[in-house]
Design a protein around this nucleic acid. Structure first.
Lengths: 193, 193
DNA sequence: AGCGTTTCTTAAGATACCTTAAGATTTTTG
DNA sequence: CAAAAATCTTAAGGTATCTTAAGAAACGCT
């Protein structure tokens, strides 16, 4: 299946699109191919696209003042990745987005998307849903970070994202969960034995 | 000014509404008056309304297995409060929403809002914006929790929400920031001296 | 297959943050 | 205005998590 067809299918699982609309929508997206480790969005750029992962695995992360990386999100095929903050506020990104595997991303420019909102209202509804879901997921994450121990966070991550756990290095999971790789390693040893 | 007028003004700062639409929108909202400490949403209920604070101050919080409260959000006039998770997924709320002062809230039922989306598209756009902003704010919060020390979080909170800092007890700020009240107290002493 | 790079583990010492408990202060209520 | 309730502080001892450093294992490229 062509990358763009996976996207249309993705839309159609959530909203109704006529074939005519689907064709129009397809034309609004561009394909970007990324090699492993290639960077899709750099800190300092303004993110002007919404991005759908048709294939592969990416991460978004930011670097703090001490040049430590903090992973904000992983994404695999069927997910969206972006520095939404930058995209929505049109300010320079504080995040990087990087391919962890060879990946294919479909992206649409903000201006094109806004036109699409006017022409195909179902798409605006889709993105409202999308932001709702994103919000809910983030809130879960925030509450987890605030109220759970490192150990609890790790085991919840494992049961929720087994597919991701098996595709990304352990030290990146540690970063995502807000702990050091050493600590995660110790945790695993403790509970595996 | 009537509570409902503050809401219409709030909408009009972000989207365009004809007078006709504004009148229609006004009729969709209901006024709820809350005494201090009164609870607007209980754990276990499904949240079916979007809620705008016309006046007062509220908090949403959840209780963990050990019956400890974790504050998720504060809200004052001009803000929206809700357990969005419950509202969006129609599952029982895990949060409480409680008035910290005498408050006036305007709320709209989900079904009414969905009708409104169809009748007044600008309102759908408004809520898309709203979810976007909510997402961005939450992401900031999540990253802060993961990458900053308690001290940094506190001083950022102070500079960002000076108005809220002065209206809510310190132990609730500690809860919001994910630290114990004792630790916050010690922090303040250390840096005030 | 072999070498460099990436990833994971181990361990010791440090520190940020928590728990408990009690008393001091401030605010609310009758 | 007094009593009760809510909030804030202090202090001692404990625990979770971090830092640093070094070596081991796995992986990826030529």
């Amino acid at each position: 299946m062509e990358p763009i067809d996976t996207l249309i299918q993705h839309f159609r699982e959530r909203i109704t699109l006529t074939d005519h609309d689907a064709r129009y929508v397809s034309e609004c997206f561009h394909v970007v191919t990324l090699k492993k480790k290639e960077i899709l969005l750099h800190t300092g750029e303004v993110s002007s696209h919404m991005r759908y992962i048709a294939e592969g695995c990416l991460r978004s992360y930011y670097m703090d003042e001490e040049a430590r990386e903090h992973i904000i999100q992983f994404g695999i095929e069927g997910w969206w990745v972006n520095d939404l903050y930058s995209y929505l506020t049109r300010t320079p990104a504080k995040q990087f987005i990087q391919a962890l595997e060879h990946s294919i991303v479909l992206q649409i420019h903000r201006d094109t998307l806004h036109q699409l909102y006017d022409r195909v209202p179902a798409i605006e509804r889709f993105f409202r849903f999308k932001f709702e879901k994103a919000y809910v997921a983030l809130q879960d994450r925030t509450l987890n970070t605030l109220s759970k121990t490192a150990e609890e966070r790790y085991f919840e991550f494992r049961s929720k994202y087994r597919d991701i756990e098996q595709r990304v290095p352990q030290y990146m999971i540690a970063s995502y969960l807000g702990m050091t790789p050493e600590f995660l390693s110790a945790l695993r040893k403790k509970t595996t034995t």
